[in-house]
């Protein structure tokens, strides 16, 4: 006896070929006896056929893929190698996952040794100098000894002497870190009290990321990252002398999309009273607007103008810093 309800339950299995040959034959026999069920089955298979046809035409044309690959390469360039690659480089190029047990054990021993040495070094740096207890004994009522402190700090380095390296935490997001050649310099030099001090900006980057994470929401950080990549791509594409008008089509489209998101995020920041986020988003908005509104064949002067403003405002470098994400390691070692 044919039961339409039960047969319809089988339709999905039948359409998506989830039945074995015998079950399929029986199901089709069942359908033959019921015009309604058969009509439904046919319309389902037809809908899938049309879907397949239509989705073929929705795919972008061939010219889209070189740009896609370029963007992927660009994004990969910003990727840091995984910890395993760094480890492999460090131990001399062997791969921990595929290597036999003995080298793995040796590698682990090396890592443990390194961690031990590093911890010992840190303890040494924190421990009081041997002279400190002597000073304490000699001066039972200690006063701040500015003079002796200055003696240590204000030594003028001898010619050729290696200058001190230190890591500092700055309370504000330091955009100046990226002000040379549009790249974040690894070291910043300062002269204080006759002593040259080098700030290790790379190690400070972790603090910066935490500050950035506290200022901006993850969505805003992601937005900055996308905007930064788009502006970089725009700058590079528009700087090429032989660029074709279509070269900027992607940037224009993406800019339009980022613009809408920028407006949403800015309004959100306004509502929440997040002034740093609001300011950063406001400074980005005119550029997105200008790029989104570029004509099909923009004049070189028009592009040059935007590029020049980008350079003057150092927006790409600022966005790069603003989109720095704190790594899990940083959360573990505050």
């Amino acid at each position: 006896m044919h039961d339409c309800g039960k047969t319809k339950e089988l339709l999905v299995d039948l359409v998506f070929d989830e039945l074995g040959p015998e079950a399929r034959r029986r199901a089709l026999l069942e359908l033959e006896g019921c015009p309604d069920c058969l009509a439904q089955y046919r319309s389902m298979t037809e809908a899938l056929r049309v879907f397949d046809q239509v989705t073929e035409t929705a795919m972008p044309e061939e010219g889209y893929w070189p740009g896609y690959e370029t963007r992927l390469r660009e994004r990969l360039r910003h990727e840091r190698p995984s910890w395993m690659w760094r480890l492999a480089d460090w131990i001399g190029g062997f791969r921990p996952l595929t290597a036999p047990a003995l080298p793995v054990a040796a590698g682990l021993a090396l890592v443990l040794l390194a961690i031990g040495w590093w911890t010992w070094q840190r303890r040494q740096a924190v421990a009081p100098t041997p002279s400190a207890p002597v000073v304490a004994r000699e001066t039972p009522t200690p006063k701040p000894n500015v003079e002796s402190h200055d003696k240590v700090i204000a030594i003028t380095p001898k010619p050729g002497e290696i200058s001190n390296r230190r890591t500092t935490v700055h309370p504000t997001v330091h955009l100046a870190a990226a002000r040379s050649n549009g790249k974040a310099p690894s070291v910043r030099r300062e002269e204080r009290g006759g002593k040259i001090i080098e700030d290790d900006v790379v190690s400070r980057g972790s603090d910066q990321s935490l500050i950035v994470a506290s200022l901006f929401t993850p969505e805003t950080i992601k937005h900055f990252e996308k905007a930064q990549l788009m502006l970089r791509s725009f700058r590079n594409a528009s700087a090429e002398k032989s660029f074709a008008a279509t070269d900027l089509a992607y940037e224009r489209q993406l800019s339009r999309r980022l613009l809408y998101q920028n407006i949403l995020l800015r309004r959100d920041a306004e509502l929440k009273g997040n002034l740093p986020a609001e300011e950063a988003l406001s400074s980005l908005e005119p550029f997105l607007l200008d790029i989104a509104n570029l004509p099909d064949k923009p004049a070189p002067g028009e592009l040059g103008g935007i590029r020049e403003r980008l350079r003057r405002k150092e927006l790409i470098a600022s966005l790069q810093i603003s989109s720095a994400r704190p790594s899990a390691r940083m959360y573990q070692n505050p």
Partner: peptide, 25 residues
């Protein structure tokens, strides 16, 4: 699949399907 059917306007009347299942089988 039903949503797609609806939006793509794919419908079959029972009369059209007399020998369809037999062919499929």
């Amino acid at each position: 699949i039903n949503r797609l059917r609806e939006y793509l306007g794919v419908k079959f009347s029972a009369a059209e399907d007399v020998s369809y299942a037999a062919r499929e089988r």
